[in-house]
Computed example of a mutant assay.
Amino acid sequence: MKIIVLVKQVPDTWGDRTLDLRTGWLDRVSSDCVIDEINERALEVALSYQDSNDAEVVALTMGPDSAKDMLRKALAMGADSAIHLLDGGLAGADLLRTSEVIAAAATKAGFDLIIAGNESTDGRGGTLPSLIAGRLGVAQATYLDSVVITTDAVSGHRATENGSMTVHAQLPAVVSVTEQSAEPRFPNFKGIMRAKKKPVTVWSLADLGLEATSASAHSVITQTSPRPARVAGTKIVDHGNAGVELAEFLAAGRLI
């Protein structure tokens, strides 16, 4: 079985994240960039299956040249190889363009199962796995809290507002996992050393047979402004009428 795991380089969630007010895009230079934690969980699902089954695990990312460092961590965790979609024409690509490119790469590489996180911590679109499944014409099972993989199918539990459901699909398929899924393993020294010898394939748009421009290539940001400075909140001191003041404050904010 060949499993492709989608991984993404994102600004560290423990650091400050800001917008580039000139482009309107997230400023990825001013903070440390790491592999998205939800992608580590997706990778763990694949590696856990590989631990006891015959499977090839490929980490795939679309991003700038610096993303190669993040791919090395995926390889150190246990992925067999990596694919880096690298092309200047992909800067600022929106979800439609991203799904187009990743679907083309998955088709070129071949796959039985694609595993992704439910949403990235920078964009939080939450629709990329479904878009990819739609372009590939395969089944999808998204937002899974747990995943069970067999030789010809995948299943898992999905939480809903009214409870939970068990979903399943025949392979090939695309699934996405939530933060309730597998806890990711840490790379050990042997894994880090092996990662240096594992292959990383770099593909451009031309390699995928795609045009450098596309009608769905980019989102258009018309205006940006810095976040306003935080102001002090309303402070209520009890002089015997604090209850009334609190009720009036909540009523003014239409909270009661």
Rank of each mutant, 00 (worst) to 15 (best):
residue 142 T to H: 05
residue 144 L to Y: 07
residue 144 L to S: 03
residue 148 V to C: 14
residue 149 I to E: 08
residue 150 T to V: 03
residue 151 T to Q: 00
residue 152 D to R: 12
residue 153 A to G: 12
residue 154 V to Q: 11
residue 155 S to L: 10
residue 156 G to F: 04
residue 156 G to Y: 10
residue 156 G to S: 08
residue 157 H to S: 12
residue 159 A to Q: 13
residue 160 T to F: 08
residue 160 T to V: 09
residue 160 T to W: 08
residue 164 S to W: 14
residue 164 S to C: 08
residue 167 V to R: 06
residue 167 V to H: 04
residue 167 V to P: 15
residue 168 H to F: 08
residue 168 H to R: 15
residue 169 A to R: 05
residue 170 Q to S: 12
residue 171 L to G: 07
residue 172 P to E: 02
residue 173 A to F: 04
residue 173 A to I: 14
residue 173 A to E: 09
residue 174 V to R: 09
residue 174 V to C: 01
residue 174 V to I: 07
residue 175 V to C: 06
residue 175 V to P: 03
residue 176 S to I: 05
residue 177 V to R: 09
residue 178 T to D: 00
residue 178 T to F: 00
residue 179 E to V: 09
residue 181 S to R: 13
residue 182 A to E: 15
residue 183 E to W: 04
residue 185 R to L: 06
residue 187 P to W: 02
residue 187 P to F: 01
residue 191 G to R: 03
residue 192 I to P: 00
residue 194 R to P: 13
residue 195 A to V: 07
residue 197 K to E: 14
residue 198 K to F: 07
residue 200 V to H: 02
residue 202 V to I: 12
residue 204 S to Q: 10
residue 206 A to Y: 05
residue 207 D to R: 03
residue 207 D to W: 00
residue 209 G to T: 11
residue 210 L to E: 07
residue 210 L to S: 10
residue 211 E to C: 07
residue 213 T to M: 01
residue 214 S to D: 11
residue 216 S to W: 01
residue 217 A to E: 14
residue 218 H to M: 04
residue 222 T to W: 06
residue 224 T to P: 09
residue 224 T to A: 12
residue 227 R to T: 03
residue 227 R to W: 02
residue 228 P to F: 11
residue 228 P to C: 03
residue 229 A to F: 06
residue 230 R to Y: 10
residue 230 R to A: 10
residue 233 G to I: 15
residue 233 G to F: 11
residue 234 T to A: 02
residue 234 T to W: 01
residue 235 K to N: 08
residue 239 H to E: 01
residue 239 H to N: 10
residue 240 G to D: 08
residue 240 G to H: 02
residue 240 G to A: 06
residue 245 E to W: 12
residue 245 E to A: 02
residue 245 E to L: 12
residue 248 E to P: 05
residue 248 E to A: 13
residue 250 L to V: 06
residue 254 R to E: 14
residue 255 L to P: 08
residue 255 L to T: 15
residue 256 I to K: 03
